[in-house]
Write a protein that binds this DNA or RNA. Structure first.
Lengths: 354, 354
DNA sequence: TTGTACGCGTTATCAC
DNA sequence: GTGATAACGCGTACAA
């Protein structure tokens, strides 16, 4: 409104110039102090810092971004909202916590991009790709063939996934767990304890987590010389409803155990079993995946694979910011450990180890 | 780097000037087209739009923010992370979904600010107050006396809370539920069905949700002429562990029902009861609050108050953006409806209505 | 209806 | 060590 430097409108934030005037130096010097640059005398620095402190000044991020081309913000992208944030599940909020822990610590803001139910994919992608408020992206629960990846790579945008990539592997940084081995461990545990007709209700097979857990299941059967029976493999998605439906489909066949691709699915199985008057683990054993907090609380407590979701988020954020800051060049693949947690749903006393 | 307009460095984003050149018009005309301003001939507009489309151009948000003083982004602030994101709980992620649904629809970005465990409050507050990447804030699960509010009001920052404010009421926009009445309804349901020694394990009493639910509990007792027995009131926090502990404390006293201030607490109660060999609802009735998805899944299924968390988030976001856009002036208080969901934990068949 | 010119608040590049 | 001054990319009075 006014061009008069001496009178600042009320409520108008201060700027470098104002601070400089108050400190009796030039704008450039204030900038140097703020950015911790050398070549400022101790005395000047102290004076300027005092004024900054006194005024509670902080530099305008938009102006800064305009010249530095950096926003000091990252984005979290969740394309498949219905799967990822099935509200049964603490996976998502735990991941967020892990991520923000690091972004906060490393002085970055965090933008959240959830694909909405009515959204078409193309618009969602454009919204993210065109938004230039972020220096990089963490992509969670995307389909392995999601076109987003091609666009990100083409645009040269830094990104990290929390699933194993199946395409563009040489361009993709990721942090995940060894889903194949973990699932295999779970199923082998069932086999070791006398279950031989083991069914599985899978997660989304277009997400590597789902795909890999099915592979682990197959591997376990194969190692034990148990034939792979497609009747016992119910393709589904990572949510409770699918577990519930899957259980009902399985009724047509004989089985003595179910490996659920995650705990939400296991929850659905338990609900169906209960309605059908089937008892776990007496009528069939059940093993889940994720170790959500609720697992101890179920009846019976759920045997499951524990995975370090918080750490996954934290590692992803660190990796992304390292990438942005140029501290990491070659594509990184970080694998986090998992653990089989034996409770009661698998029919083995939790005292005796696997 | 280069001042030569005719040669753009590879990977350098286009700007208005470039588009203008390609379209054979001036920069301002392109700006007008992008901002849907009048006084552009249909022909010019079409031409410019074609170039924009062809180049996949979108304006630099930092530059835009610098001049408009608007970021088209809002922030979500969660001060009490341990309470709000107790990983038992879908409340938080559901709220996020509700919020982002609206922010997306109204073309705003969403920033996430979670107070970290090791964080001191003062630093957290500064981080938010000094960050100018947002046009307004949604504050969730803050203590009613959180100093943040005073700062926000002083700074003239638009904000909306999803709890009832106890101070600065005339300056605070909020959307919440009628916690008092809802809690009262829950407890009256217990009374009506013969329970007279009703205990409660409260939520955080420095959050209005916790305070109000306790008030509702008192009101119900009072209406029924049941004396208020402080032995039966366990001050606690909104998480499962506190429910577990609270249940154990209650063992010293006689009671025939528990009103848990949220479902997470009820979960803890159920776990403790199970370990103690107490049966619900035979040994005591139990009612929760929230109606998290898992409630149907518990043993027994949990009677609880349903609250529309998704809608809460959506209303909050709409209200905030209305505020930012100047469409709303006087402080708004939006109250959303709740409903008592009768299942089995209260000892009443779910068929017969409370 | 279109174009010119200035300002938004920084950082970066020079002189001094 | 310090201070002008030119970008950064956009919106917007004002002139044409």
């Amino acid at each position: 409104m006014t061009n008069n430097n001496s009178i600042r409108p009320i409520n108008k934030a201060m700027n470098l110039e104002d601070i400089a005037a108050k400190a009796g130096v030039s704008r450039s010097t204030v900038s140097r102090v703020i950015n911790n640059e050398p070549y400022v005398s101790a005395k000047t620095r102290t004076k300027v810092e005092a004024v900054i402190e006194e005024e509670g000044f902080s530099p305008n991020p938009a102006a800064r971004t305009l010249v530095t081309q950096r926003t000091k913000a990252i984005g979290i992208v969740i394309p498949h909202i219905l799967n990822a944030i099935s509200s049964d599940d603490a996976y998502f909020s735990t991941l967020l916590r892990g991520i923000t822990e690091v972004t906060t610590q490393r002085d970055h803001a965090t933008l959240l991009w959830l694909e909405q139910t009515g959204d078409d994919e193309e618009r969602f992608r454009r919204r993210i790709l065109q938004n230039r408020m972020m220096d990089g992206l963490i992509v969670a629960s995307a389909a392995t063939n999601d076109p987003l990846f091609a666009h990100l790579i083409e645009a040269g945008t830094h990104f990290v996934t929390v699933e194993r990539p199946t395409q563009f592997r040489e361009h993709t940084n990721y942090v995940t767990i060894d889903n194949v081995t973990a699932a295999q461990t779970a199923v082998e545990h069932l086999i070791k304890h006398g279950r031989h007709r083991i069914a599985t209700i899978t997660g989304n097979l277009n997400i590597s987590d789902g795909e890999d857990r099915l592979t682990g299941y197959r591997n376990a059967l194969e190692s034990a010389g148990i034939p792979y029976d497609t009747n016992l493999v119910i393709p589904a998605q990572f949510n409770r409803h699918n577990g519930y439906q899957g259980m009902k489909e399985l009724l047509n066949f004989k089985f003595d155990a179910i490996f659920a691709a995650n705990d939400a699915i296991a929850l659905g199985v338990m609900q169906a079993a209960r309605e059908l008057g089937l008892r776990i683990p007496d009528d069939f054993a059940l093993v889940g995946f994720d170790d959500m907090n609720i697992a101890t609380q179920l009846n019976p407590p759920l045997t499951t694979i524990h995975q370090p979701v918080l750490e996954k988020g934290a590692h992803a954020a660190n990796l992304l910011i390292d990438l942005i800051e140029g501290k990491v060049k070659t594509p990184q693949a970080i694998l986090l450990p998992t653990e089989l947690i034996i409770r009661e749903s698998c029919g083995v006393k939790s005292k005796e180890t696997g």
